[in-house]
Design a protein around this nucleic acid. Sequence first.
DNA 1: CTGTTCAGCTAACGCTGTTCAGTTAACACG
DNA 2: CGTGTTAACTGAACAGCGTTAGCTGAACAG
Lengths: 215, 215
Amino acid sequence: MTGLSDLAAAPQPSRARRGEGDRTRQAILRAAEELLIESGSQEQVNIRAVAERVGLTPPAIYRYFSDKDHLLFEACGQYFDDFEDEVINPVLRTTDDVIEALRRIAEGYVRFGLHHPEHYRIMFMLHHDHTPEQYADDRVVETGSFGSTAALVQRGVATGQLRGDLDVAALTWALWAGLHGLVALAVAKPNMPGPPIDQRVAAMIDVLMDGAAPR
Amino acid sequence: MTGLSDLAAAPQPSRARRGEGDRTRQAILRAAEELLIESGSQEQVNIRAVAERVGLTPPAIYRYFSDKDHLLFEACGQYFDDFEDEVINPVLRTTDDVIEALRRIAEGYVRFGLHHPEHYRIMFMLHHDHTPEQYADDRVVETGSFGSTAALVQRGVATGQLRGDLDVAALTWALWAGLHGLVALAVAKPNMPGPPIDQRVAAMIDVLMDGAAPR
DNA sequence: CTGTTCAGCTAACGCTGTTCAGTTAACACG
DNA sequence: CGTGTTAACTGAACAGCGTTAGCTGAACAG
């Protein structure tokens, strides 16, 4: 056992220095995420495996995370915080057309989910008993991503590009839920037969956008 | 411990008779399902709890089910086998209109899922590593329910009631995935704010059906 | 040098799904 | 009625999990 070799490049630091607990914390998060991506299953990301990868013993993890759920959600949450910057904002910056913006955000959302399937599972498909407070159900819709999209839908309704006979919130929900269904099915049942995923994505977005348009 | 008192109404049968293993099997399934409904969480349905409820010891379960996943899926599968008889067939029997039929099936699907949330989780939202072969991904779309719906969509396309510019399979997928997203979100994040569930269901079905209609 | 505190370890608990080897009870047959 | 067979079941245990209690040692402040 080399000690915290993964933590810093120092030769043989037997432990982190006084104020460097945050560095250990980040190392734990990184190890958990690596395990999540490598194994593709949250169950493989167990405390002992994470501890071993960081070069610690299992109880040391609990100095930084209250339990496994918090560790897992925080590891995944980092990704989803990036969604607004990586997908939504670029789209908003490069187009003023509501329809085009929504289509591109939809594509980005699906791509994002399919690219991080296990992250997606943990964030959106886990039993809510396992969801830490800071990621509670009601917090999800308070994210900038949801707000930005809702604002976009509202603008579309105002300009007549989207149907006005439905509650704006309900319409936004429908669009999101539709995309979520696509991703969730692909994540949970990746071996389903049927049209290739790209075709399914295209069809879903077509149906949703046409369904959201005025008749 | 009264023995298999839940199994039969007999006074004190200390164990099942020679050929009555199937009865024990059914009792185990029933106990598992009861626990699932009562606790609302698959984790609470552990082998020891199931065994205790049936009046057996844990190892006895493994004489009837190879592991917990098989037990859980079989307990849930019973419900979904009923879906075709309870929802789809009555609809097909009482209407010839494709649009109306699809709308009513959609409503039935959502209602069905929301009424058995934990069953729905296990069947459609679990990691596929935990899915027994007999419930494998590719089997899902081979169910009568999916086939009936696909046939309905096909008929709608043929009669011009549904859009013909998309692959029929892809269109069916989109409709299903949309409903799945609604149910999956409600199941996983039941405390989300936003419009009441009935309004969300109505909006989703409106969007999907309008999106599936020819323009 | 001394007291404090952070960082981490050792050991263990309780729970889980699961297995192995043995036991009991029901039945068929001579 | 006794005896062999076998289905049904038990007791004890294993390995793995998340987690906790209590201790140790290094790092720093005074």
